[in-house]
C-alpha cells in the first residue's frame, strides 16, 4: 500500500511522516511514542484513545492518521508534566479519581474538552461529557468529583 506524507503537530511539536491511508491516528501516535494514547477496544466504544484534534475530542482509533493533516493534536502528556500538573490532572490525583489508570488519559482529555467550552459545568454535564469514556474501576464518582474541583480551580485561577 502506498504511503502518503503527513505533517501535523503533537503537543506543540511538529512531525513529518509517511503513512499508509488505512493507518489510524491511534496506531500512528503510539508508533511515534505517544503510548499515553491507549488502545482499549479500537472500535470507538471505550474512549481510552481520546485526544484533542484542533481542540475537539476524538477517538483516535476512529480517526485516520491522514485526517490529522496540518492539525494540532493534544494528548494527556501535552497538558501537564509530572513537575507541573494541569489542574485537571492535579484534581484527578488529589481526589482519588485514578485507580488502574488505563482510562485516565482519555478521561482527562474529555474533561479538558468539556472545561474549555463550559468552565462551570453541573455534575450532570460532567457525566454527559465523559459518558464516552468507560471506566471499570472507579464507578465514576471520584472522576466527577475531580472534574468539578478542577473546574473550580481553573475558574479561580483566571
Amino acid at each position: 500500500m502506498k504511503k502518503y506524507p503527513l505533517e501535523f503537530k503533537v503537543n506543540g511539536k511538529k512531525y513529518s511522516v509517511e503513512v499508509k491511508p488505512n493507518v489510524t491516528l491511534l496506531r500512528l501516535l503510539r508508533s511515534l511514542g505517544f503510548t499515553e494514547v491507549k488502545a482499549g477496544c479500537e472500535k470507538g466504544d471505550c474512549g481510552t484513545c481520546a485526544v484533542l484534534l484542533d481542540g475537539e475530542p476524538v477517538n483516535s482509533c476512529l480517526t485516520l492518521a491522514l485526517q490529522a493533516q496540518g492539525k494540532e493534536i493534544t494528548t494527556v502528556r501535552g497538558l501537564g508534566t509530572m513537575e507541573k500538573l494541569h489542574p485537571i490532572q492535579e484534581a484527578f490525583v488529589k481526589y482519588g479519581a485514578i485507580q488502574c489508570g488505563f482510562c485516565t488519559p482519555g478521561m482527562i482529555i474529555s474533561a479538558k474538552a468539556l472545561l474549555d467550552k463550559n468552565p462551570n459545568p453541573t455534575r450532570e454535564e460532567i457525566r454527559e461529557a465523559i459518558s464516552g469514556n468507560l471506566c471499570r474501576c472507579t464507578g465514576y464518582q471520584k472522576i466527577v468529583d475531580a472534574i468539578e474541583a478542577a473546574a473550580k480551580m481553573m475558574r479561580e485561577a483566571k
Binding site: T35, E36, V37, K38, A39, T75, V76, R77, L79, G80, T81, M82, L85, Q89, E90, F92, V93, K94, G96, I98, G101, F102, T104, P105, I108
Partner: peptide, 21 residues
C-alpha cells in the same frame, strides 16, 4: 489519611508503561 497514591501523578500524566506500551 486520604493521601493520593504514589503512582497517581505518573498515571495522570500518561507516563505509566502498561504491557502494550
Amino acid at each position: 489519611k486520604r493521601l493520593p497514591s504514589h503512582d497517581a501523578v505518573e498515571k495522570a500524566t500518561g507516563q505509566t508503561k502498561y504491557a502494550d506500551d
